[in-house]
Amino acid sequence: MMELKVNGRVHSVDAAPDTPLLYVLRDDLQLNAAKYGCGLGQCGACTVIVDGEAVFSCVIPILLLQGKEITTVEGLGSIDQPGPMQRAFIEEQAAQCGYCIPGMMMRAQALLQKNPLVSDEEIRRTLEQNLCRCGTHMRILRAVRRAVQLMQVATPART
């Protein structure tokens, strides 16, 4: 038994310690958003946030994750109450098949959490690691820019 903290809740997980996080998220915790794309850390469909950093959940074994804060798309909001990043993707209609989108959202979320005033160039450079096959790139870039604005509204600067 291992303990994993996912989206603010601690879960006891009965899985071999070398199991990559992706399979625990999907099969044990029944979280759909992180996707199997390559199992090689090459496409980004499995991207989640661990202690503020975007990581490939398909290659990181759970034994390295004890005591760490793991966030998935499910931790950003729900279909009834989508968070700013999710709202931005809905408002920009930034999906076709949508399979790569949760990974895109998590990598962008990690970027924006670190730097809320990110430039277009930094958005592109950061998303370079994530692949989209439908060619939704223009909309994904627009959605991330919109998320920048929505997050500023959601968390106004402290005076």
């Binding site: 950003l76 989508p82 999906a95 949508g98």
Partner: peptide
């Protein structure tokens, strides 16, 4: 707005996977 997008961006059960 496409009816499938909200589920796809919130971790809904969408795919055969």
């Amino acid at each position: 707005p496409r009816i499938d997008i909200p589920g796809k961006v919130t971790g809904g059960s969408v795919y055969v996977q």
